[in-house]
Design a protein around this nucleic acid. Structure first.
Lengths: 116, 116
DNA sequence: ACGCTATATCGACGTCTGTCAATGCATGAG
DNA sequence: CTCATGCATTGACAGACGTCGATATAGCGT
């Protein structure tokens, strides 16, 4: 149930029918819960929305730390959680690490929650 | 950041633009995170899908305890979290407590996660 | 009134989580 | 090579969470 040891969102989504279409197995529920847990934190939600709003849809840690009001290690930690969960990608250029949204990741999770 | 002290999902949704449309304020992020946290647990996800799949779309605690494999107090606890968060409603008939999905609750949360 | 049944609440426990300061590790500049 | 910079990792700590057994509450049948 820890937020670690998770499949990328996309894979979780591939395996599961929408939440209200058929009853989830224990494993499906664990996978989906892990993906949602990665999202269910105010700092991480703001990070996602800040990355999405950034120029060229990417941002480095240095751009995110100050507006978020958290320490640099904490921001790095949250970015790692989001990356491991499959919501963000990381690409290093020089000393900077740039994070971008994974296209479709949020849509996939979102589709799992609705009936249609 | 606790899962308690939350607005019903519907209210959270009413206040916020989709996650990737504009950057979330600290308060918006906290509200949305609380709603997602209520969902981000394997037992609670299964409860929702079990309620949705039940005859007449409702279920009492006694129907849910055994298939979930958790103790009755734990199931009651999870149902309370989901109800407080605005995903379920509770209606008592005799000694039984019946839980139903709140129409539109999952759709609302889901809509917040996508760009459109 | 009594006991039975279905839920809710309480108290306690171990585990997980978010946070930071300190440290480590690359990379680029000089 | 050395130093400064941007980021990741580690270790520690407080608070939150999921779980259960025990207990309380409430409604029904007899």
């Amino acid at each position: 149930m820890a937020v670690q040891n998770l499949l990328p969102v996309i894979d979780v989504v591939a395996c599961c029918a929408p939440l209200t279409r058929e009853t989830l197995s224990a494993e499906q529920a664990e996978d989906l819960a892990r993906s949602l847990k990665a999202l269910a934190d105010p700092a991480r939600l703001r990070l996602i929305s800040m990355v999405a709003a950034s120029k060229d849809s990417e941002a480095c840690v240095c751009d995110l730390t100050e507006p978020l009001g958290l320490s640099q290690p904490t921001v790095s930690h949250h970015l790692k959680v989001l990356t491991d969960a499959g919501y963000l990608t990381r690409s290093q250029r020089g000393t900077w690490a740039y994070y971008r949204l994974v296209p479709g990741a949020l849509d996939s999770i979102s589709r799992l929650l609705v009936n249609a």
